[in-house]
Deep mutational scan, measured.
Amino acid sequence: MDVFMKGLSKAKEGVVAAAEKTKQGVAEAAGKTKEGVLYVGSKTKEGVVHGVATVAEKTKEQVTNVGGAVVTGVTAVAQKTVEGAGSIAAATGFVKKDQLGKNEEGAPQEGILEDMPVDPDNEAYEMPSEEGYQDYEPEA
């Protein structure tokens, strides 16, 4: 019985440690998101679009440190934060509304985080759909 109880105690310690790591990862992701939003706020009209992409990228980098179902929630929060940063930029006159959601080359930025393969159960990952990809044929 002692062996059984000791095993359960060790398992509990492992769960607590994993929860603490997840909590730490979420806190880091939130900190990076805040950094990115402050970065966007300090940019001029020309830099705002690039700044919004930076927020998304920093958040995406930190999301990889967070495991399990938390990833889905962090990704949703990050996307809403990026959308909010863009709205703030438009409201303050840093950028025109028609410039939001495009990178410096004018290509749409939507789907940055949505296409990231995420499995809350950590069982399997699927690649994003290939609808947006084109076949590449090298020139002879």
Results as ranks from 00 to 15, higher is better:
residue 105 E to Y: 09
residue 84 G to C: 12
residue 40 V to R: 01
residue 140 A to V: 09
residue 108 P to W: 09
residue 96 K to C: 15
residue 12 K to E: 00
residue 29 A to Q: 02
residue 119 D to W: 03
residue 48 V to P: 00
residue 96 K to Y: 15
residue 138 P to K: 04
residue 122 N to I: 07
residue 123 E to M: 09
residue 4 F to A: 00
residue 12 K to S: 04
residue 42 S to G: 08
residue 104 E to R: 14
residue 77 V to N: 01
residue 133 Y to W: 11
residue 48 V to D: 00
residue 103 N to K: 14
residue 4 F to L: 06
residue 21 K to E: 00
residue 54 T to R: 15
residue 139 E to G: 08
residue 46 E to H: 06
residue 66 V to F: 14
residue 47 G to N: 11
residue 81 T to Y: 11
residue 120 P to L: 07
residue 22 T to I: 11
residue 135 D to H: 13
residue 108 P to H: 08
residue 55 V to S: 01
residue 107 A to Q: 05
residue 72 T to M: 15
residue 38 L to D: 01
residue 44 T to C: 11
residue 52 V to K: 01
residue 100 L to G: 10
residue 115 D to A: 14
residue 139 E to F: 12
residue 38 L to T: 04
residue 46 E to D: 08
residue 49 V to A: 09
residue 13 E to W: 04
residue 30 A to I: 15
residue 64 T to V: 10
residue 97 K to Y: 02
residue 88 I to T: 03
residue 5 M to P: 00
residue 109 Q to T: 10
residue 114 E to M: 03
residue 57 E to Q: 05
residue 115 D to N: 08
residue 127 M to H: 06
residue 80 K to H: 06
residue 23 K to H: 07
residue 80 K to T: 04
residue 122 N to M: 09
residue 89 A to E: 03
residue 4 F to I: 06
residue 96 K to S: 11
residue 109 Q to V: 11
residue 138 P to F: 07
residue 29 A to N: 01
residue 16 V to A: 06
residue 124 A to C: 13
residue 1 M to E: 00
residue 62 Q to A: 07
residue 71 V to H: 04
residue 2 D to N: 15
residue 39 Y to F: 09
residue 70 V to M: 11
residue 127 M to K: 11
residue 129 S to Q: 09
residue 28 E to L: 07
residue 124 A to G: 06
residue 77 V to R: 03
residue 100 L to Q: 07
residue 10 K to W: 05
residue 105 E to P: 03
residue 68 G to P: 06
residue 113 L to F: 08
residue 27 A to H: 07
residue 66 V to H: 03
residue 98 D to N: 14
residue 132 G to A: 13
residue 55 V to Q: 01
residue 86 G to N: 14
residue 41 G to L: 01
residue 102 K to I: 10
residue 95 V to C: 12
residue 103 N to F: 09
residue 62 Q to W: 05
residue 60 K to S: 04
residue 112 I to V: 12
residue 15 V to K: 00
residue 74 V to S: 01
residue 18 A to G: 02
residue 17 A to P: 00
residue 25 G to W: 11
residue 68 G to W: 14
residue 80 K to W: 13
residue 80 K to L: 14
residue 20 E to C: 13
residue 14 G to Q: 15
residue 105 E to L: 08
residue 77 V to S: 02
residue 105 E to G: 07
residue 44 T to I: 15
residue 69 A to V: 07
